[in-house]
Amino acid sequence: MQKIPKTPKCYVGGAFVRSESGRVAPLTDYAGNFFANIPRCGAKDLRNAVQAAAKAGAGWAKRTPYNRAQILYRLAEMIESRSAELAAAVSDRGSPDLQSITEVSATISRIVYFAGWADKYEQVLGSVNPVSSPHFNFTLTEPVGIVGVLAPENAPLLGLLTLILPIITSGNSVVALASRSRPYPAILLGEMLATSDLPGGVVNLLTGERKDLLATFATHQHIRAIAAVADHADATALEQGAAESLKRVKILSPQTDWFSPKHDSVWPIRDFTEAKTVWHPIGS
């Protein structure tokens, strides 16, 4: 009996969508055989994703930290139960290998790690400030808003999630462009996100050619920050484009070692927060 191949779709606003451009790029397997058509998203798809992220973001930021923590942990559970399938996708070989199994388990660990931060990072990043006047003064963090993510080509799953996790832990929403050469793990990730409790639209996953989308990522005014794995040319283009909207841009090297424990840190969370300082007089 014939198998029913899956039609890969992007994950936007909690729904699975093809590109509005109507364009696809064929994906081959390790043996060079046709595997599936991957959507080649255009500027309009990115715009739709930003709209979805905006719609979901406010509610996500308002969730209690404990709730965000549990939802992230639930995501780890969902991935764990399909880890073999995911490892096969990561390996590009149709079956899991040591490298891909390691990547999937590192990814799960990292999700659990950031799930734990959701109700703690504020106590590390915030402060009560001992001002020299009769005022109570404190600084807390707030999510910046919608963050654009440009994923690496190495470690298509771990790299993507290492970028996304600190961003959503603090209540931001994400519009991400998956690895160009190995997009399939992101397609599967979308399916797992859909069955997790993460509200639709908090993470939106696009596939396609970076060159089609880079300028829109950089200039879209509603995107407030970018986390991008980028070479010098891409970094320059992103920072140029980001100037008008003064969005925060964090560039990571394409040679980044995504397995490094340095990524398990509260500081990437800080990169996508705003610090808000509040003053109030003390008196009767």
């Binding site: 003064n137 407030r224 300082t277 509040v278 003053w279 109030h280 007089p281």
Partner: peptide, 23 residues
């Protein structure tokens, strides 16, 4: 906004972070 003054305005202190959101 990066700084919110409640029932006061234009207070500054070296220990108090200052800076903006958006543009």
């Amino acid at each position: 906004a990066g700084v919110v003054w409640a029932n006061t305005y234009h207070k500054f202190d070296p220990s108090s972070p200052f800076g903006g959101y958006k543009q």
